[in-house]
Amino acid sequence: MFLEGLLNRGSMPVLQQVMAFTQERHEVLANNISNFDTVGYKMQDLPVEEFFESLDAAIADRDRGGASRPLRMRSTSNLHWDRVGRLHAQPVEIENNNILFHDGNNRFVEKQMSAMAKNALLHNVSAELLRGQYEMLRTALRERL
């Protein structure tokens, strides 16, 4: 379809994937913060490296097949994309995060808070870039500035 071709090319699907991932990761990070004082809780995270490797591979794969090919994310051990391209992520416990406290919790408050801030920044930048793309499309469709 024409419209689908417009919306599924260039950086748009890439930005959509980044937004989906950062939203998913934000929940995991918020969960860590709510469990800062829970006995025996281990900090969790989503595999960021794994996601970006998968994204890189998907972009390279798409570029080989011509610009009209959709972006196909390949699932990894902890990140799974279903048939409609929705992300299902399995959080992993972080080993060696920090010294283990006497209550069996391995919180690292500063690291968790900065991870959350960085993740939110990445999300907001992606959203802003995506908005710019939509604005450009809107301008083109209106045929006037």
């Binding site: 950062t22 939203q23 934000h26 990070l29 918020a30 913060i33 709510s34 808070m113 959350m116 801030a117 939110a120 999300h123 907001n124 959203a127």
Partner: peptide, 11 residues
């Protein structure tokens, strides 16, 4: 936790 809520709201 309040900070986390604020970040969620911004996102």
């Amino acid at each position: 936790n309040i900070t986390a809520v604020e970040v969620s709201k911004a996102m």
